[in-house]
Design a binder for these strands. Structure first.
Lengths: 140, 140
DNA sequence: CCATTATTGCAAGTCTATTGCAAATAACAC
DNA sequence: GTGTTATTTGCAATAGACTTGCAATAATGG
């Protein structure tokens, strides 16, 4: 059982662990692709979990706020995707331009670069987005 | 005068250099920030150039297709921005989370990383997005 | 200048995501 | 378990970015 589904993080912020939130977390747990809100919606429908698309949006936002879920804005997709955080290290992704498959890149090369950018621009760097797209082995 | 506004790139693809396309190119030339479609629209209105928002969208798409303009998807902005290419080197940006100022980063550290990703994932890498956000010197 | 064909403006539509509000339900005290 | 209360949900409506259909307009080539 996911630590998350016991609801500590939620209750600690005055929120409740509900059936729909459990269902979204469980779906994200058994899915190994970052999912969009509409994908979460339709996959839960197929699994006979009654949930409104609006509730999906509200749920992923809450899960993001309490740090259980990460929001991804992949390269020119026009929609956000969500994946479980679950103590995983910060990482990036590559997405196949043809079949849409998304693969994790288990690295982030940007720590040194962040220092360099801060020195050059005088900004304080807060966050970054790094996403690749290309052709996966099957689609080449 | 911008090379672009003479229209070779357009005519070479069976397209025409029109007053509105010139106006969009000229605006992008004199503006040193990447602009969104709605910003292009409103700034042209202020400059008394009659143009429809729909035409702005179609124009930036054409300019992107013929390679005069680059489309940026900045970090969780929910809209695209456009900047002139004009022979400039591929580069990335940092955006202030408070005032929205966007500064060019005149570097791209990803050539070696691209090779590494191709070796590890067997993808052929086609493109990437790398955008930073943070606090600019004035907003700190 | 004329004919052809690309381009524009307007209206309507699509898609992602958000908000208001009444009804449902989880958490908690008893 | 029962009841109370605040959170959460579903539905409808709305917002914002962007696209499409189509008739009217305007740029090019002869």
């Amino acid at each position: 059982m996911l630590e998350a589904t016991t609801g500590q993080g939620l209750r600690a912020t005055g929120r409740r662990m509900t059936r729909t939130r459990k269902a979204v977390l469980a779906l994200l747990e058994r899915t190994h692709q970052p999912l969009s809100a509409s994908e979460i919606f339709s996959q839960l429908q197929e699994a006979d979990v009654a949930i409104d698309l609006v509730t999906v949006y509200r749920t992923v936002n809450v899960l993001k706020e309490i740090g259980l879920v990460v929001q991804l804005d992949l390269h020119q997709e026009g929609q956000s995707r969500y994946e479980l955080k679950e103590g995983r290290k910060h990482h990036h992704h590559i997405r196949c331009q043809i079949c849409g498959k998304i693969v994790d890149l288990l690295l982030c090369p940007l720590k040194k670069l962040t220092k360099l950018i801060e020195a050059r621009t005088q900004f304080i760097v807060g966050d970054h987005t790094l996403e690749f797209s290309g052709l996966c082995p099957q689609c080449q």
